[in-house]
Amino acid sequence: MTAVIMIYALLGVGLVASLLKSRARTAKAFKVAGKALLKSAPSLLTVLGIVGLTLGILTPETITRLVGAEAGFTATIIASVIGAITLIPSLVAFPLAGSLLRSGATVMTISAFVTTLVMVGVVTAPMEVKELGKRFALLRNALSLIAALVIAGIMGVLL
């Protein structure tokens, strides 16, 4: 909600300033925006559908079953795969991670889950590719996955 308010506040200030300076340029900004939005619509819809599907199938209960069933290394791998694929809102993800930790999952598993969750986005990849190119998206996600696993390893040792 804060995000929505913030974005609309920014938009309001920007629009007023822009309109005061030049109506023609403001109209052009709308044209640029409309074109970009139309161009992004298919990938937006795709991301939407995939996010819905993954969250509908991988419920917190299912994730708990998958991660909680195995202790140790297998659990860490499963956790990072789930984290890399899904896009779970932080208000759902962190309570889930907390309850997994309390019910016996290792710190390494939990940090693998959290770090891949926030850094690697397979479900948002169609949009990332559309906006930023295949090379950028692939490189960023692959490097982030490696980094997330290393971070999980270090955290497992440290904490």
Binding site: A3, V4, I7, Y8, L10, L11, G14, L15, S18, K21, R25, T26, K28, A29, F30, K31, V32, A33, G34, A36, L37, S40, L44, L48
Partner: peptide
Amino acid sequence: MALIMPPVFILMGLLEVW
């Protein structure tokens, strides 16, 4: 998305122009 994306794209349009 319907709430967030249009203002974001308009903001980007303003940035592009100004």
